[in-house]
Design a protein around this nucleic acid. Structure first.
Length: 510
RNA sequence: GCCCCCAUCGUCUAGUGGCCCAGGACACCGCCCUUUCAAGGCGGCGGCGGGGAUUCGAAUUCCCCUGGGGGCACCA
């Protein structure tokens, strides 16, 4: 038994997205598992861009994928923007440098690959034939026995040709770190293309060459690649190279059990970012989607995940994406942020509040919402009380102000409000003290009301409605500290006058 | 259709033959705390897909069925 610590080769893993779209949460999870595995083993995490599909690849997608990965905190050690000793990390550049052709020539020379001149149309017919015979579609090897000289001649004459890998009979065993041993009969695989007729390497070929050149030791990717792994294993064998270890994790499903797609809501990292999710919560949730540490802990920091992550503990079955649990974790991580970090995180979501408010007011508002947010984007709604007072005449709740007790509360409150500092008069550093002062003022007022036999509940409710025109919102001490002293006075007076007017007319009518 | 993978509460999971008439978390419901809404605390509801076999004993091993997922490109 060899212990992990005595493994001679340093672990090298890679995340290899193709820049044909933005970073999906499924891909992000693949990246995360690679990252956690690498960091746990003190290995190297490589980022490689698989852009051999020139028609679909776009520069802007590459940039956005890099952005999202960085935002998630999955730093890579080698990559297209960072460089590294083992070559270019963009397949298009590697192809341009001729890195694949040498390997392809070698396979040709050893008769392990051959030129295929079949047309797209013939291939399509072949597929339909197989299907109609209830067989797994595969190439019939028509070009497999064309003599080398004849092939060269046709090539020289300008006939387009792809290069196919000759799949030998037998079986292919994928030894998987998560699934264990799975066996594919080679017969069902069929000779696959390794070099397209345009000269570019196909996926299954480029990946193997890159992984060899980049000395990748472990390939961690989604289960949708299981059959690709079988093909790639064949290429390693043909090239007489030691293959890496494989691990295929399950895929993420939508709530209805089907493939996770846009109709289920947000699916890309960028969308979650804009919706107000914290990167810490996203990677925490994604990790939990099919992995659990021995401790059973749910909320974890990145460092804790790195410490505990072990690939063999990743579950084998598909996992359904559960937004509610992500929401729960997001709330926990928001609450865990210290003042400065929360300020940084929430600022982009403060909307017009940021421009409207003083530094002191902003500081109070932030303290007021941090304990109750699910997403950062929820802040705007919760902050409305600070900035949009519903006119009392329009507020249904204002009816509760029209009675003697409420009037009395407003009088007493008005008398004490003068002693308060409003947020216009202090800065962020003083926010805590002012909130405390507001708390004190409220408890004094409560005592006073008690003596006059007014229930605290009524006092608080009256106060709240008078200040905001609403029955719910941030805690009163925050509201009091967060509004300018002058605003507090005006609103209390307006409420008193409002109530007095209705009470008076009511009296006259009766 | 063929090949491969998977199968514990609604959801994510713990569980590697006896510690499990199955534990935790989210969600849901109730109670408590409380100036509102949250948060927090406490409690409740709820599951080993079915059938065989092995065994003194099976969620755990094997087989079959069923169900779900993935793959079957000159896409990655």
């Amino acid at each position: 038994m060899i212990s992990e610590h005595s493994l001679p080769t340093p672990v090298r893993v890679r995340f290899a997205p193709s820049p044909t779209g933005t970073l999906h949460v499924g891909s992000a999870r693949t990246a995360l598992y690679n990252y956690l595995f690498a960091r746990h083993q003190r290995g190297i995490f490589v980022l490689r861009i698989e852009d051999t599909d020139a028609a679909r690849s776009r520069q802007e997608f590459e940039r956005s994928i890099l952005d999202d990965l960085a935002w998630l905190g999955l730093e890579w050690d080698e990559g297209p923007d960072k460089g590294g000793d083992l070559g270019s990390y963009r397949q298009s550049e590697r192809s341009g440098a001729g890195l694949y052709s040498g390997y392809a020539r070698r396979l040709m020379d050893e008769n392990k690959a051959y030129h295929c001149f079949c047309s797209q149309e013939r291939l399509e017919e072949l597929k339909q034939e197989c299907l109609s015979r209830n067989e797994m579609p595969q190439y019939d090897r028509r070009c497999g026995d064309i003599p080398r000289q004849e092939a060269e001649a046709r090539l020289a004459a300008g006939e387009p040709a792809a290069i196919r890998f000759r799949v030998a009979d037998g079986e292919v065993v994928v030894d998987d770190l998560i699934h264990g041993r799975t066996v594919f009969p080679a017969g069902v695989i069929g000779d696959f293309i390794i070099v397209r007729s345009d000269g570019g390497p196909s996926y299954n070929f480029a990946v193997v060459v890159d992984d060899i050149d980049m000395e990748i030791t472990h390939v961690i990717r989604g289960e949708d690649h299981l059959t690709n792994s079988a093909r790639q294993l064949l290429v390693y064998r043909a090239l007489a190279q030691e293959p890496p270890s494989f691990a295929h994790h399950s895929l993420i499903m939508g709530p209805d059990g089907g493939k996770l797609s846009k109709r289920h809501g947000a699916t890309s990292v960028g969308e979650f970012r804009r919706l107000g999710y914290l990167p810490a919560a996203i990677i925490n949730y994604l990790a939990l989607l099919s992995w659990a540490p021995p401790s059973g802990r749910e909320q974890m920091s990145k460092a804790e995940m790195i410490k505990d992550f072990e690939i063999h503990r990743v579950a084998r079955s598909p996992a359904i994406f559960d937004l509610q649990k992500l929401n729960w974790l997001n709330g926990l991580h928001i609450r865990d942020l210290d003042g400065e970090a929360f300020h940084k995180a929430i600022t982009p979501f403060m909307g017009r509040a940021a421009g409207l408010a003083s530094e002191g007011q902003l500081a109070v508002a932030e303290k007021a919402v941090q304990t109750s947010l699910v997403t950062l984007a929820d802040a705007a709604g919760q902050l409305a009380a600070f900035f949009d007072q519903k006119p009392l005449a329009e507020a249904e709740e204002a009816a509760e102000l029209i009675n003697a007790a409420s009037m009395r509360v407003l009088e007493l409150a008005l008398a004490r409000a003068a002693a308060l500092n409003g947020a216009a008069e202090f800065n962020a550093a003083g926010a805590g003290e002012e909130i405390e002062a507001a708390r004190l003022m409220l408890s004094g007022l409560k005592q006073e009301c008690r003596q006059e036999e007014i229930a605290p509940k009524q006092m608080y409710r009256t106060f709240r409605i008078a200040l905001t025109g609403r029955a719910s919102g941030p805690e009163l001490p925050f509201l009091l500290a967060g509004l300018a002293r002058e605003t507090v006075r005006q609103r209390l007076e307006a409420a008193r006058d409002f109530a007095a007017a209705r009470l008076g007319s009511k009296g006259q009518a009766g």
